[in-house]
Amino acid sequence: MTKFRPCIDLHNGSVKQIVGGSLSADGHGLLTNFESDQPAAYYAELYQKDQLRGGHVIKLGPGNDEAAREALAAYPGGLQVGGGIHLENAAEWLQAGASHVIVTSWLFDAQGHFLPERLGQLVAELGRERLVLDLSCREQDRGWVVAMNRWQTPTDLNVDSASIQELANYCDEFLVHAADVEGKCEGVDARLVEFLGQHSPIPVTYAGGANAFEDLETVNRLSAGRVDLTIGSALDLFGGSQIRYTDCVNWNRGT
């Protein structure tokens, strides 16, 4: 059954909800849907109280390490962490309390060429059971393409059946933001959800576009219960009006 997975998105040390496609290195053109007056640890403590596991803390650029560490310390073993993760710091984030580290950009060179040897190094260092691969993607003429550098740079790695099957041998889960709809609250990418449900042999969490509580049932139906859903900007917890956090908690409890 599809589960609701919580999130803590960090930008400049604050919990924010951002339109994914607007996130650039210099901050120009950034579209922010919500900025919290609560620290990251507040959300981590809430998720722990409500027994929500497997959520992700994403550091969107620099200036977020302290807030991320505070969240992980507030809910040790209950959250994954991503953003700027590489071979030299991955173990430190696990020691800080993350259940898994989430990796994308470090697996590519500056031109977006996939470097499988780096993935092998991470698995040797951490074990595949502590690793989540972020296959957040944009749709191009050749299909879905992994996007790195805050979802701005397309890579040469397609998100297709062959790549999903192969990469599943090197990680515990996938995280897939549909970057084209992330933060827009215009509905989930049904084709991508269905594809992930059909082809991923390991757990996968989808994020992007959710705008109604019924999206949990939609994702459950499209993926035959094999894809979990993260909800951000539409959630009342993050200033949204379309989806109540308590309803999502009760969905996970089966009530």
Results as ranks from 00 to 15, higher is better:
residue 49 K to T: 13
residue 195 F to Y: 13
residue 3 K to Y: 11
residue 234 A to F: 07
residue 44 A to K: 08
residue 202 I to P: 02
residue 37 D to I: 02
residue 64 N to H: 12
residue 83 G to W: 00
residue 186 E to V: 09
residue 147 A to H: 15
residue 244 R to A: 13
residue 56 H to L: 05
residue 220 N to M: 01
residue 103 V to G: 00
residue 136 S to V: 00
residue 87 L to N: 12
residue 94 L to M: 10
residue 105 S to M: 02
residue 61 G to R: 02
residue 105 S to A: 06
residue 146 V to S: 09
residue 208 G to W: 03
residue 198 Q to K: 13
residue 74 A to Q: 02
residue 253 R to S: 13
residue 152 Q to C: 09
residue 17 Q to C: 13
residue 255 T to D: 05
residue 205 T to G: 01
residue 67 A to I: 10
residue 113 H to A: 12
residue 222 L to Q: 00
residue 182 E to W: 01
residue 224 A to G: 14
residue 68 A to L: 00
residue 216 L to P: 10
residue 246 T to Q: 15
residue 175 L to R: 01
residue 104 T to I: 00
residue 149 N to D: 08
residue 254 G to H: 00
residue 128 R to T: 00
residue 163 S to R: 10
residue 163 S to D: 03
residue 46 L to G: 01
residue 83 G to L: 04
residue 217 E to G: 06
residue 216 L to W: 11
residue 131 L to E: 13
residue 150 R to Q: 12
residue 127 G to Q: 07
residue 121 Q to Y: 04
residue 170 Y to G: 06
residue 71 A to N: 04
residue 228 D to I: 04
residue 101 V to A: 08
residue 145 V to F: 05
residue 70 E to W: 07
residue 45 E to K: 15
residue 95 Q to W: 03
residue 111 Q to Y: 08
residue 255 T to N: 13
residue 29 G to N: 04
residue 245 Y to V: 09
residue 40 A to T: 14
residue 86 H to A: 08
residue 222 L to S: 01
residue 124 A to G: 13
residue 14 S to V: 07
residue 133 L to F: 06
residue 40 A to I: 06
residue 138 R to S: 10
residue 234 A to C: 09
residue 230 T to N: 06
residue 252 N to G: 12
residue 124 A to K: 14
residue 177 H to A: 11
residue 42 Y to F: 15
residue 67 A to E: 08
residue 64 N to K: 08
residue 155 T to F: 04
residue 32 T to S: 14
residue 178 A to K: 01
residue 26 D to N: 15
residue 185 C to S: 10
residue 29 G to S: 14
residue 196 L to A: 04
residue 54 G to P: 11
residue 153 T to D: 07
